[in-house]
């Protein structure tokens, strides 16, 4: 086991908990653990005792329109998981918390106050040989009043917002080949392709996994500052938009920028390349350079 990491280095240390913390607090009555994986069956092979399963695909999205749940549906869903407005929700999952960060970001849109990620995710918990169980977690429905709105303006960007944003920093978190336009999809995700390859003009390329260590934990604040603030040129910007292909990888980067580095206004453009690369007349840059932002 490695030495405990000091979360106080991050801008919002309360948004991150360690595997130790989860081991100690998982049975607290105000704590709900939600496991969010890419693999829809991974939770069933063994999960942290008491954790509930959340599937990014089937639980968080509207089943018809390309959009998230509405406030009423969200409240029903949260209540079904035993969550109240006061609950501390801890997300964790596979692939360096990729999908856990996505679920956390969606919950953020509904204004839930206390949302945290378990640093290192499922991988670290398993590597530390901590307890897993295949016992289903009994459902204990709670009361969750429907939020008045889903706030789509503070942390979420639509394509019109991206057009308005030109001149300020954009981060493209896809792989280098998707960024340059040589590939119109991510390897293994051919069905999520786009008509055109490339990136949004002026976007800096920072593949999302750069923010994670080998063991799935987040890099230190100093390392993250080097990657985003310096190399990607975000500097002291007060508004940043991140995007990827459908908005899930960029949720991970959103978490890093918003909570670990403390950028003030970070939005995730969940339409991402599957919208931008298919839309008529939107500007695109190809190749490995960011290119110029179009005049507004």
């Amino acid at each position: 086991m490695t030495e405990a990491k000091d979360f106080s280095q991050y801008a919002h240390p309360e948004a991150l908990v360690s595997t130790d913390w989860v081991a100690q607090h998982k049975d607290d009555p105000n704590v709900v653990l939600l496991e969010s994986n890419e693999d829809v069956l991974l939770y069933e092979t063994g999960h942290i005792p008491g954790a509930q399963k959340i599937d990014w695909h089937t639980d968080l999205n509207d089943s018809v329109t390309r959009d998230f749940l509405g406030p009423e549906q969200f409240a029903d869903f949260a209540a079904s998981k035993g969550i109240t407005r006061e609950t501390t929700i801890v997300f964790y999952g596979d692939k360096s918390n990729w999908w856990a960060a996505y679920a956390l970001w969606v919950f953020t849109l509904f204004g839930h106050a206390d949302l945290r990620l378990m640093d290192g995710g499922r991988q670290k918990w398993v590597a530390e040989e901590r307890e897993l169980t295949t016992e289903p977690t009994p459902a204990a429905p709670a009361e969750y009043p429907a939020p008045a709105v889903r706030d789509d303006s503070t942390f979420r960007a639509f394509r019109e917002d991206v057009l308005e944003h030109f001149g300020k920093p954009l981060v493209d978190v896809r792989s280098p080949l998707e960024y340059s336009g040589e590939r119109t999809h991510m390897e293994g995700y051919e069905q999520e392709g786009a008509m055109r390859g490339g990136h949004i003009p002026s976007a800096a390329s920072v593949p999302w996994a750069k923010a994670a260590n080998e063991d799935g934990t987040f890099r230190s604040r100093a390392e993250l500052e080097e990657i985003y603030t310096e190399q990607a040129g975000l500097g002291a910007a007060d508004e940043v938009i991140a995007y990827c292909r459908i908005g899930e990888r960029s949720s991970h980067t959103w978490f890093v920028l918003q909570h670990l580095l403390g950028y003030q206004n970070v939005r995730n453009y969940d339409g991402s390349w599957t919208e931008w690369g298919n839309a008529v007349r939107l500007p695109i840059t190809t190749g490995d350079q960011p290119g110029e932002a179009p005049a507004r």
Binding site: D39, V40, L42, E44, T45, D94
Partner: peptide, 9 residues
């Protein structure tokens, strides 16, 4: 790998 149960299935 075991951490890919859907693919294994």
């Amino acid at each position: 790998p075991p951490e890919a149960p859907t693919t294994r299935g």
